[in-house]
């Protein structure tokens, strides 16, 4: 009976290959709740580039907390308020500070990933001399999922990434930057 079940499940999975990316994006797989933020500091241009990947369904849950309408984030049907809500959410849940002073970042833009499940957002801090210590606060989606993990990597002048993991119970970390 277990054999039959196994073959059935394998068979049914085979039936569904290949499925369209849209289908995958809408269904949401046995979800793994994680975001990824890539920080690149360039001393040449005195700037910090911020690239953030999150899953659309996760972010929608976080944002739709505040309004009743569906947002259709990252699609053609996207609601007009979506961008503003996203910016506010990011400002609240992904922040940087040096010596207790908040470092503001400029919005560059965003793009939906090829499989339509995620969004890459791009931000930048300009006129930013290399800080000795950069404090990162990342509480993205921690209010939505108890098992949310947020991965942050930091790369100083292409010297190699250092990774930091944020989760419920660890929303802040300090990146030490070589002078």
């Amino acid at each position: 009976m277990m054999n039959i079940l196994l073959y059935l499940s394998l068979f049914s999975t085979l039936l569904t290959i290949p499925s369209s990316p849209e289908e995958v994006a809408e269904d949401g797989l046995h979800d793994y709740h994680v975001s990824k933020c890539i920080l690149n500091y360039r001393s040449e241009t005195q700037s910090l580039e911020i690239s953030l990947h999150f899953f659309i369904d996760d972010m929608e849950l976080a944002l739709e907390d505040q309004i009743s309408e569906p947002l259709f984030l990252g699609t053609e049907k996207e609601s007009e308020e979506a961008q503003q809500l996203l910016l506010e959410y990011l400002d609240q849940h992904l922040s940087f500070s040096v010596d207790r002073k908040k470092v503001n970042y400029d919005w560059i833009g965003r793009e939906t990933t090829d499989d339509l499940s995620g969004i890459w957002s791009y931000m930048e801090v300009t006129n930013f001399p290399p800080p000795g210590k950069l404090k990162v606060r990342n509480s993205l989606m921690l209010d939505v999922y108890s098992d949310q993990k947020n991965l942050v990597s930091f790369n100083f002048d292409e010297s190699g990434e250092v990774y930091y993991l944020f989760r419920s119970g660890k929303k802040e970390d300090v990146i030490s930057i070589p002078r």
Binding site: M2, L6, H30, Y32
Partner: peptide, 30 residues
């Protein structure tokens, strides 16, 4: 229970579970 069935079932269950994380890996590969 048949040891081979249990082993295969564990492999099958693992196959299903791998999908969640693979979605993240694929989508977020910079």
């Amino acid at each position: 229970p048949n040891w081979r069935s249990a082993f295969l079932l564990a492999v099958g269950f693992g196959l299903i579970h791998g999908l969640g994380f693979s979605n993240f890996l694929r989508s977020s590969l910079f």
